[in-house]
Design a protein around this nucleic acid. Structure first.
Length: 511
RNA sequence: GCCGCGUUGGUCAAGGGGUUAAGACGCCUCCCUUUCACGGAGGAAUCACGGGUUCGAAUCCCGUACGUGGUACCA
């Protein structure tokens, strides 16, 4: 490890939409690594593709990082000494490096239009080579500063012909590197194409930008998704050609997060299909108006979300699964990151959240569920909510579950599972409930112990057993076979609500 | 197609020549609770396949299969 240099890592998203869970995990690993080594975590915005710019996406990224508690040390909003932090604002920096590569013979001008490229791919396409590349075999048949005479090139440049700059891949060379998670990996240059470095609009592609920026920003460790591994040789070559080989960061290509079922990388469509979030927070596409739900709004605690993500592809070798952020920092190491992709498991994610929910005190939980109750059109004071939380939290996995598990604390149940009691219903029960309900008016001390005592006495007098009446009572009150103790519910919802719900049910049962 | 990377129960995974192959989620059974959940006790379930190397392979090597990623003037 480069011991002398201060550790600097970066997360470099392109602001094109919601922040994917895999992106958050990449941020997390960057963050953990940086903090563990007393380094700096920088956020750089990769907005070199102006066609894909999405309004609000950058702001959204900041919000997500804020919610997760993974604040960058340097970013467009808190610039350090290496700004600007948006590639679009760094546009002027890249040309000189492209020029240097051309001057040194490592890159060249290419004048081919998009149509010509398409034509080439069509022309060389065979069944054994379905996607022909712009490479050493096709290079000389295209219009570029290798195939054209110097005079022609000068002329084309002179009249302002649009051009791109391409990297000239060397022949018959093996390029290898040591990846922090995979060990040594190698590539044959003959199989890599001449990547575009500078686009016709003067913007760099990712390939040039990532190298130039990582160099200029003194990045020491570069972590990214495994999908980048195939283009690693391009980047390796660039570091070398630009003469910065000794400054090159150490790479780590992180395993992908895969769909829970079927094939491929997890996408937001899977979330919609299977009913779970994929983005960190709600994201509304400003162009289509399409809204995608986030972990936050679905009821996750950020600590749980982070903890779950950390363990998806990494573990510290012990049996510990619950880690605070500080513990994660202390225990994290890149060489314990898995090589293989991990399937996303929403059930496990919910389990983590449940663990964190249980750790929270009722006061703070009550505050947190406030918006979820409000979403359903109800509200309650903090004191009441604290009690509700205390009664139902162990049966909630997500903050949003508090409504499903406790809606009856706020209103009469919309539906009553009458079938569950009607079969064994009889006149004795009917009259017992009727008189008991009325007698509620006489209870002086309104607490669940007392209510239960009275209930039990009357029940016995009527010749009934708990098994006969407890379930019916529960269903009258909450609507179904779930929830905390019935007498605690009665204490909470009060005399009138109880009487009302019982009488409503009694009418239905009689009919 | 080609190239890269990968492969331990359904899922996350420990284990890196000799283990009864951990643990967690989920699932099932039982206990607790006359609901559900929590909690407790159990259970089913795994080294992709084929060849080597070795006294001995989940562990090392080779091949195959499968998965996954890439193959853009997108990142």
């Amino acid at each position: 490890m480069s011991s002398s240099k201060k550790v600097r890592v970066r997360f470099a998203p392109s602001p094109t939409g919601g922040l994917h869970l895999g992106g958050v995990r990449t941020v997390l690993y960057n963050y953990l690594f940086a903090k563990l080594h007393g380094g700096e975590f920088v956020l750089r915005i990769e907005d070199t593709d102006q066609k894909r710019f999405v309004e609000g996406a950058e702001d959204y990224i900041f919000q997500c990082l804020g919610w997760c508690g993974l604040q960058p040390d340097e970013s467009p909003r808190h610039p350090g000494a290496y700004g600007p932090y948006r590639q679009s604002e760094r546009k002027h920096l890249y040309f000189q490096y492209a020029q240097k590569l051309i001057d040194d013979g490592y890159a060249y001008y290419a004048f081919d239009t998009p149509d010509e490229l398409e034509e080439m791919r069509k022309r060389f396409k065979t069944s054994s080579n379905p996607t022909p590349q712009y490479d050493q075999v096709t290079r000389m048949q295209m219009r570029n500063s290798h195939s054209l005479s110097p005079e022609k090139v000068t002329e084309l440049l002179g009249v302002g012909t649009p051009y791109v700059v391409r990297l000239k891949m060397p022949q018959n060379t093996t390029i290898s590197m040591v990846d922090m998670v995979r060990g040594e990996v190698s590539f044959e240059t003959d199989l890599v194409d001449d990547k575009v470095l500078l686009k016709a609009d003067g913007m760099p592609t990712y390939h040039l930008a990532v190298v130039v920026d990582d160099y200029l920003m003194k990045i020491t460790h570069a972590f990214r998704g495994e999908e980048w591994l195939p283009s690693a040789p391009v980047h390796l070559l660039l570091w070398k050609y630009l003469g910065w080989e000794k400054e090159m960061p150490q790479w780590a290509h992180l395993p992908l997060i895969l769909k829970p079922d079927g094939h491929g990388k997890l996408s937001k469509r899977d979330g919609e299909r299977l009913g779970f979030p994929v983005f960190a927070m709600d994201w509304t596409d400003p162009n289509t108006g399409e809204k995608t739900i986030g972990f936050k709004e679905r009821g996750f605690l950020p600590e749980a979300f982070i903890n779950f993500l950390a363990l998806l592809g990494w573990n510290d070798g012990t049996e510990q699964e619950i880690f605070s952020l500080d513990e994660l920092i202390a225990h994290f190491s890149m060489d314990r990151v898995h090589k293989g992709g991990a399937r996303f498991d929403f059930e496990k994610a919910k389990w983590f959240n449940h663990q964190y929910l249980l750790q929270k005190d009722n006061e703070s939980l009550a505050k947190m569920i406030q918006p979820f109750i409000a979403n359903n059109g109800f509200s309650a004071n903090q004191e009441y909510l604290v009690k509700v939380v205390g009664l139902i939290k162990e049966r909630c996995h997500l903050l949003s579950d508090f409504w499903a598990q406790g809606h009856f604390f706020f209103r009469s149940p919309e539906n009553i599972d009458i079938d569950a009691i009607s079969e064994k219903w009889n006149e004795t029960k009917q009259s017992f409930f009727s008189t008991w309900s009325e007698s509620l008016a006489n209870i002086s001390t309104w607490d669940h112990q007392n209510i239960e005592q009275v209930f039990t006495r009357q029940m016995t007098e009527s010749g009934l057993k708990k098994g006969d009446v407890l379930l019916p009572l529960r269903i009258m009150l909450v609507g179904g076979k779930y929830g905390p103790g019935v007498f605690e519910i009665i204490e909470m919802i009060g005399r009138e609500q109880t009487q009302q719900r019982v009488s409503t049910a009694l009418i239905k049962l009689k009919a």
